[in-house]
Design a protein around this nucleic acid. Structure first.
Lengths: 136, 136
DNA sequence: ATTTTATTCGTAATCATTATTATTTCGAGA
DNA sequence: TCTCGAAATAATAATGATTACGAATAAAAT
């Protein structure tokens, strides 16, 4: 996803276009990996010395709700990344060193043959962790 | 796993048998579900008004290291459950209401056919979330 | 330009988790 | 049973991530 597409999405929903939001999105567009909130804060502070965590988290959650970002929990911290171009549902390999990811098209829910009668399935998580070719 | 088996495992490794440890294990033996650290603390405080979080966490991590407990992250909090009787590697359905779980024998890593050449796989997570038959 | 309203700033509070130090308890051996 | 050293605990305090809130600001609608 590029910057303009994301901003367009927000505009359609009636959200304002602020410098901070643009800057946050720019960071994600530039980096194809999961990023922690505090890293975002640090980078934004170069342009906006006064940004608060409130702004960061509010926007990260907003962008996640609008499906512009995807979130996951890594090492006790929430991490975010730009939604993938890959169409449709998929999963990720996540490098535990650099945070870069590789899409996994395979979804275990398609292959699972377990008896889950009576269980109301709402969601699932499948992630593979390790070192990417660069880090290993 | 029952209480005696767990205590035996600890003894073999040279860990002391303390009332607090016993009590923590009892709680897990009684409840077949993921439990948050703070719930454990609350329950233990009925018997030991002075227990500290330090004791709780130290023991939860110790028990996890000794493979008596299993850990996962739910809603930003670490949760623990007694290791399953189910032998070997497996996954879980987790009820988002009551926290009870059902073992899933199927492991996606056996079926995955994605090209991950060059990637050093260390770990993976597969969990299904939803409502169990009782809660749905 | 003015008004409306979302958004941000600045800061403080909260919550889970980890760390510290003095004290207590376990349990092995005398 | 008693003593002793190691291990474990209690009682905080500290940290780090996240959330909350009132006042100030900035975007966009009129």
């Amino acid at each position: 996803m590029n910057l303009e597409t994301a901003l367009q999405k927000l505009k359609e929903k009636g959200y304002k276009r602020t410098r901070q939001r643009e800057r946050i999105l720019e960071i994600f567009v530039k980096q194809d990996q999961y990023i922690a909130a505090k890293s975002i804060l640090k980078e934004i502070q170069e342009d906006f010395p006064g940004v608060s965590y409130d702004t960061i988290y509010r926007n990260l959650y907003l962008l996640t709700d609008e499906e512009i970002l995807e979130a996951t929990e890594l090492g006790g911290e929430k991490h975010f990344r730009l939604g993938c171009d890959t169409q449709g549902h998929h999963h990720h390999f996540i490098c535990t060193d650099c945070g870069k990811t590789k899409s996994i098209e395979f979804c275990p829910m398609e292959s699972i043959n377990e008896n889950l009668k009576g269980y109301d399935i709402e969601n699932h998580k499948f992630e593979i962790y390790g070192k990417c070719p660069v880090c290993s």
